[in-house]
Design a protein around this nucleic acid. Sequence first.
DNA 1: GTCTATAACGTGATAGAC
DNA 2: GTCTATCACGTTATAGAC
Lengths: 201, 201
Amino acid sequence: MVRRRGDTRRDILSAAEHLFQVKGFNGFSYQHIAQELGVRNAAVHYHFPSKGDLGLAMISRFREDFGWWRVQQEARSTTGSQRLEAFFGLDRRYSEQRKVCPLGVVGVEFAGMPPEMCREAHALVDDVLSYIEDALALGREDGTLSFDGELPAVALHVLAATQGGLQLGRLQGPRGFDTVLDGLRSVLRMAGPADGARVAG
Amino acid sequence: MVRRRGDTRRDILSAAEHLFQVKGFNGFSYQHIAQELGVRNAAVHYHFPSKGDLGLAMISRFREDFGWWRVQQEARSTTGSQRLEAFFGLDRRYSEQRKVCPLGVVGVEFAGMPPEMCREAHALVDDVLSYIEDALALGREDGTLSFDGELPAVALHVLAATQGGLQLGRLQGPRGFDTVLDGLRSVLRMAGPADGARVAG
DNA sequence: GTCTATAACGTGATAGAC
DNA sequence: GTCTATCACGTTATAGAC
C-alpha cells in the first residue's frame, strides 16, 4: 500500500476512530494504530503528541463530519420523518459494523478521559440533539411524526435509546438494535425505513 | 481500618465493581484495587488469578444481586408501574453516583473483553429484560401501564433508553437522565415516582 | 491468606538522526 | 515527515517465603 504525503494525519484519525468505536478509548494504543498503518509508533506521536490530543482531534472530526452530513441531509430530506430516518441510518451502519456511538464511549469511560475531550463530546451531544430536535419539530409540523412531550426531552430520549440500542445489539445480535429502532418509530408514529411498508407496534 | 478474615474477596469485588462502573473495564488495574483496600497487588491475584476471572466474577455477582433484588421487589411491589419504577430507582442511584450500568460498560468495551464475561453479560441482559417484561405485562393487566407494541420489544426499548440516559447524563448532568426517565413514563402512560403527583409529557 | 520480590510485557512519550 | 532507539512507568501475572 503506497501512501501519499499529507494523508498520514487523516489516516491516523481514521484508524483511531475505528478502534475507538470498536474497543473503546482505553482499548487501543499508539502501537495498534502504527501497525495498522504500517508506520512507526513515533510517527503517530509526531502528529498527535499525547493521546489526549488524538482523542480531542477525533471528537472534533466527528463533529465536523456530522456538521457536513447534517447540511447534506437537510438539503435532500424534505420531511421530518425522512430526516430522523437518515439519523437512524447513521447508527444502523454503526450497528452493522458492530461499532457503538462515539458518545457512548465517552459516556462510559468519562471519568478517566482528558477534560478537553469531554467538553468536545458535550458539544457533539448538543450538535446531535439539535439535529434531532429540528427533525422532530419539522415532522410534527408536516404531519410525518406525532408524539407527546417537549422537543428537547423527546430528542434526548431518541438519542439515549439509539445509543443504548447499539450497545445492547453487541450482546444480543444486530436484530436487537433494529428492534429498538422499530420501538422508536412506533413511539413517534413513524412509518418504516422503506417508506410506509412497515407499521411498527 | 481493621479487616476481618474472609471479607477480602468480597471487598475486592466491591471495589472492582465501583471502578468498573466509573472508569470502565480497561480503566482500572489490580493496583487501583489493592491501593483502595490497603492490600498488595498479589493479594488480588490470589483471589482472582487473571483479570478475566475478576471480570467474570463481577458480572456473576451483578446477576446474583439482581436476582435477590428481583425477588424482594416482586414481593413488595404489587403493580406493574411500581415494579418498573423500582427498576428506574436502581438506575437513578447509579446516576446520582455518576456511574453507568455494567451492561453499558460491556457493550462499549465488548471487543476487547474475555468471552466468558460477554456470555455472562448476555445472561444478565436476559435477566433484566425478563424482569422488565414481567413488570410491563403486569402493568398492562392491572391498568397502571398502557403502551403499544410487543412486550420484548418494549422491554428492550426501556433498557436501551435507561442505559443511554445514564451515559448521556454524565455529559449533560444528572438532570439529563431524569429527563429520559420522564420520557419513558410518558410513553408508558405511567405516573411519576411520587405516585401520581407528576404527569409527564 | 497474605506477603516480598520480580518477571515479562505493553504503554505513552521523548531525543535526535535522516 | 518519518525514522531508530530508547526511556520511565504501569500493567498483568508468577514464584516462593511466611
